[in-house]
Amino acid sequence: MSGATSDYTIAPDGSFTAPLELFYPYKRTVGPTLSRFLTGLRDQRVEGTRGKDGRVHVPPAEFDPVTGEPMTEWAEVGSQGSVVSWSWQPSPVDGNVLQHPFAWALIRLDGADTALLHGVDAGRSDAMTTGMRVRARWAEERTGSITDIACFEPVTSTAVVARGGS
């Protein structure tokens, strides 16, 4: 916890105010399942785990949500997918995947049966639709993190460009 008392200001009611920063430099182990997922992202490969019922979970689940057994079977899925649900973020905050307005979206990647939460760089909210096609924009420097996918972007077709171009 830190903050500079010297940066204080005095409010109209006479109260002193000063910055206060609460910060935790966490670092954690990821376990074998997320390790494989994140290592794959570093290599621009998206993998999920397949449950007993055949459904593919991306991001991978460590345990089968149906049987409770450890998930050991893996499946590679596409880096493109469809938006299942989304919400517009008009004022991004520090640490968000993009620092200009974007959409938070649940994205079901091709070959997956569950959705992944990420940002979509759509430019404006009326460019977003449920069911729209998006693709991963890979980060140039990849370290083994969910942000190795910098964000998703609309798969542009002529129709999309025409609609979102104004």
Partner: peptide, 27 residues
């Protein structure tokens, strides 16, 4: 090597107000 751990720093920037009573003490 495989990814074994990740950094997940988290922080919040506050602007703390001492309120009028504690402020007379600070003054």
């Amino acid at each position: 090597e495989d990814v074994l751990r990740i950094r997940t720093p988290i922080g919040i920037h506050y602007r703390y107000s001492a309120g009028p009573n504690a402020s007379s003490h600070l003054r």
